[in-house]
Write a protein that binds this DNA or RNA. Structure first.
Length: 336
DNA sequence: AACCGCACCAACCGCCATGGG
DNA sequence: ACCCATGGCGGTTGGTGCGGT
């Protein structure tokens, strides 16, 4: 079957809008409201189809549109929401006042998606990729080792390597946790004895434990600012997974350190209960002790679309994504 | 200066959901 | 119950500008 495109009707203009057309459209809607979009073009004196008028208005001319670069908070919000809403741009847009779904979609496709891919994450699942291409960046980095060594002193290089090793370990472990929990329905247990919710909360508990660990490290040695020193200091600490049957996992401290810094203290936290849609992304922090959840279970209706009741923190400290994604040095280290 | 490749983004296209007749 | 008009949504395209060669 298939309906013929609305703009196929003879003589209707397509393509970029002129300032005159914009003016006509704005004038008409401000006076009369849009009413029926199909009838609007004739009434407004426009040689366009109604659909084109609607898109122009909703994506560009609407007075409440916020233009310009996306802030770090907005970027964080998009990443968080996309990790469990997927390409539901309109739903994501409801949480970003002044941003259109089209704008968010473009921003995702041109910026965020590429960053995730470059970092070795699957942009759809937000999980580390396991195929050979995802490791390419590290392989290339190794290939450039000599060049790097020529320009960096040994000590600095050792710290960099250590940080990278921690990063890789972190990714692998997160992947292990989530892959083992992903194939089962929400709330059910997997081979490790973890429910997906438990696995998710586990990550959060690791984060909180590491916060304490980091704090104590800082208290013990306030001058140890580098990752290497902090890592060494608390190397003996570990996390016991005592609630797991026949499973005791020891997590090296360097791993914890990386986890902690990566998950950060973002205020764009998302709280899930066992009954809720299960987050599948490690980039979704649960609510922390000090920061109330900003997207709660009440923020999502039964159809899975986001409602508009959430509020996002203002002046939130950089959480995981801004910290990594917006840090050029991180990208360079992992890509170059 | 000319060409090329890439990034960005506004706009289009096609499909789907919904509501009214 | 069915059809159709309409609005909404997500994927894709094409024009434009910019930087590199």
């Amino acid at each position: 079957m298939g309906r013929s495109p609305c703009c196929d009707e003879n003589g209707l203009k397509k393509g970029p809008w002129t300032p005159e057309e914009d003016h006509k459209l704005v004038q008409y809607i401000q006076k009369h409201g849009h009413g029926s979009w199909r009838a609007l073009p004739k009434l407004a004196g426009l040689n366009r189809c109604g659909k084109s008028c609607r898109l122009r208005w909703t994506n560009y001319l609407r007075p409440d549109i916020k233009r310009g670069k996306f802030s770090q908070e907005e970027e964080q919000t998009i990443l968080n929401l996309h990790s469990f809403l997927g390409n539901k741009w309109s739903a994501i847009a409801t949480h970003l006042p002044g941003r259109t779904d089209n704008e968010i979609k473009n921003f995702w496709n041109t910026h965020l998606k590429k960053k995730l891919i470059q970092m070795g994450f699957d942009p759809m699942t937000h999980r580390p990729r396991t195929d050979i291409f995802s490791s390419l960046s590290h392989l290339i980095a190794l290939a450039n080792l000599k060049d790097v060594m020529d320009h960096h002193p040994w000590e600095e290089h050792a710290v960099r390597l250590q940080a990278e090793a921690a990063q890789v370990a972190k990714l692998q472990y997160i992947q292990y946790l989530l892959q083992s929990s992903s194939p089962v329905p929400t709330g059910s247990t997997n081979l490790t004895g973890l429910t997906d919710i438990e696995a998710f909360n586990l990550l959060n508990s690791m984060k909180e434990q590491q916060n304490i660990s980091n704090l104590s490290s800082q208290l013990e040695s306030p001058n140890s600012g580098s990752l290497g020193l902090a890592t060494t200091q608390s190397f003996d600490s570990s996390i016991s997974f005592s609630h797991l049957p026949d499973l005791q996992l020891q997590v090296p401290c360097s791993f914890q350190t990386s986890l902690s810094s990566d998950f950060g203290q973002g205020t764009n936290s998302v709280l899930f209960s066992q009954e809720e849609a299960t987050p599948t992304s490690p980039w979704l922090p649960t609510s922390s002790l000090n920061t109330p959840p900003l997207v709660t279970q009440n923020s999502f209706n039964s159809s899975g679309d986001a409602c508009s009741t959430s509020s996002y923190g203002e002046g939130a400290p950089s959480a995981f994504w801004p910290e990594l994604l917006l840090d050029d040095s991180f990208l360079h280290e992992n890509i170059a």
